[in-house]
Computed example of a mutant assay.
Amino acid sequence: MAKQSSQFDYYKSQHIPELTVLRAALSDFSYDRHAHEEYALGVTLAGQQDFFSNGEFHRSTPGNVVLLNPEEVHDGHPGDDSMLGYVMAYVAPRQMESMFAEAVGREDAGRFMSRETLISDPVLRRSILDLSHLVTQQAGTCIEQEHALYRIATRLVQRSGTFQVDGKVSRPDALLIRAKEYILAHLEDDVSLDDISQAAHLSKYHFLRLFRQQFGITPHQYVLSCRVNAARNDLSAGAPPNDVAFRYGFTDLSHFNRRFKRIYGKTPHQYQRSVTAPH
């Protein structure tokens, strides 16, 4: 019997602008290491999900929750010969901030960061599956989808994460944040390692070592990841793939296709069709 090919189906919420759900079935696909700007909240449905995140390797089996904080570098692939099935909701931090603040009872709580990556929690699992169902089936009202998100935020706070407080970062972290801000501000430019390390006020050697140690990928991989994430937003807004490829410095559409597919499982055109056409 021929092995079933991998499948990736993306669904944008009709009610919450920066909420996207992925239903994936993987047999022969491996994600490149990359990072998303969003929280990624997933449930393993079938098979075995092997991935690197937060500086270590994880193995998720059916029923487990996978939680990735914004900017957390990760990859992923099936852990055995069976088909890996999972669902993942991607939510922009600004969509969650007020919900986290309400759940913790502090308006100035800051950005929530989970200490856990792989979680066994039936309540959290059910909440993520309920939200994913509402989005993939285009069901429920705006307030119902928001309530499903609030249930997730409340459960995560109950599990005791941390809140990032502005101004309390170490000097190396502050320098790397400056480097990341420079990269994000120059996604459409032909930036060099010299440019980025100078923006961080570090020697090139020290910058490379610190960056790889902190994020688990090279600055080049991070730049590519940020460009692909920005490209995804433009594609969701309806921009032509050719224009997007040129805007973010890919040599041609073929190069853009390869890089995009290594992170999202689809070509830019396939992804755009998936999130803009009715399911």
Rank of each mutant, 00 (worst) to 15 (best):
residue 1 M to F: 08
residue 1 M to N: 07
residue 9 D to W: 00
residue 17 P to Q: 11
residue 18 E to P: 06
residue 20 T to K: 02
residue 20 T to L: 00
residue 25 A to W: 01
residue 25 A to L: 07
residue 25 A to T: 03
residue 27 S to V: 09
residue 30 S to K: 15
residue 35 A to T: 10
residue 36 H to F: 05
residue 37 E to T: 11
residue 38 E to P: 04
residue 39 Y to L: 11
residue 39 Y to M: 12
residue 40 A to T: 12
residue 40 A to P: 02
residue 40 A to M: 07
residue 41 L to F: 10
residue 42 G to L: 04
residue 43 V to D: 09
residue 51 F to E: 11
residue 51 F to I: 08
residue 52 F to Q: 13
residue 54 N to H: 15
residue 54 N to V: 12
residue 55 G to P: 15
residue 55 G to Q: 14
residue 55 G to L: 08
residue 65 V to Y: 02
residue 67 L to H: 13
residue 68 L to Q: 09
residue 71 E to K: 13
residue 71 E to S: 15
residue 74 H to G: 10
residue 74 H to F: 14
residue 74 H to V: 08
residue 76 G to N: 08
residue 78 P to G: 12
residue 78 P to I: 10
residue 78 P to N: 12
residue 79 G to L: 09
residue 81 D to R: 10
residue 82 S to G: 11
residue 83 M to P: 01
residue 85 G to R: 05
residue 86 Y to G: 03
residue 88 M to S: 05
residue 88 M to K: 00
residue 89 A to L: 01
residue 93 P to K: 03
residue 93 P to G: 03
residue 96 M to G: 04
residue 97 E to A: 13
residue 98 S to M: 10
residue 100 F to K: 02
residue 101 A to P: 05
residue 101 A to Q: 07
residue 106 R to Q: 14
residue 106 R to Y: 07
residue 111 R to I: 01
residue 111 R to A: 05
residue 111 R to P: 01
residue 113 M to D: 06
residue 114 S to I: 01
residue 122 P to G: 12
residue 122 P to N: 14
residue 122 P to C: 07
residue 122 P to S: 15
residue 124 L to V: 11
residue 128 I to T: 11
residue 128 I to A: 07
residue 129 L to D: 03
residue 130 D to S: 11
residue 133 H to F: 14
residue 134 L to K: 02
residue 134 L to T: 00
residue 138 Q to F: 11
residue 138 Q to V: 05
residue 141 T to H: 13
residue 144 E to H: 03
residue 147 H to G: 11
residue 150 Y to P: 02
residue 155 R to E: 15
residue 155 R to K: 13
residue 156 L to C: 14
residue 159 R to I: 12
residue 159 R to E: 09
residue 167 G to Y: 03
residue 171 R to Q: 10
residue 177 I to N: 02
residue 177 I to M: 05
residue 180 K to R: 15
residue 191 V to K: 04
residue 192 S to D: 08
residue 192 S to K: 03
residue 197 S to I: 04
residue 199 A to P: 14
residue 200 A to F: 01
residue 206 H to M: 08
residue 208 L to D: 08
residue 210 L to S: 13
residue 212 R to D: 15
residue 220 H to T: 13
residue 222 Y to W: 15
residue 223 V to N: 06
residue 223 V to W: 05
residue 225 S to Q: 08
residue 229 N to D: 08
residue 232 R to C: 12
residue 232 R to F: 05
residue 235 L to H: 04
residue 235 L to C: 02
residue 237 A to F: 01
residue 237 A to S: 04
residue 239 A to R: 08
residue 241 P to W: 04
residue 242 N to P: 05
residue 245 A to T: 12
residue 246 F to C: 03
residue 246 F to W: 05
residue 248 Y to A: 02
residue 248 Y to T: 01
residue 250 F to G: 06
residue 250 F to P: 12
residue 250 F to I: 08
residue 251 T to F: 07
residue 251 T to A: 14
residue 253 L to E: 11
residue 253 L to M: 07
residue 256 F to E: 06
residue 257 N to E: 12
residue 258 R to W: 02
residue 259 R to V: 11
residue 261 K to L: 06
residue 266 K to I: 00
residue 266 K to S: 04
residue 268 P to C: 10
residue 270 Q to N: 08
residue 271 Y to G: 03
residue 274 S to A: 10
residue 278 P to I: 03
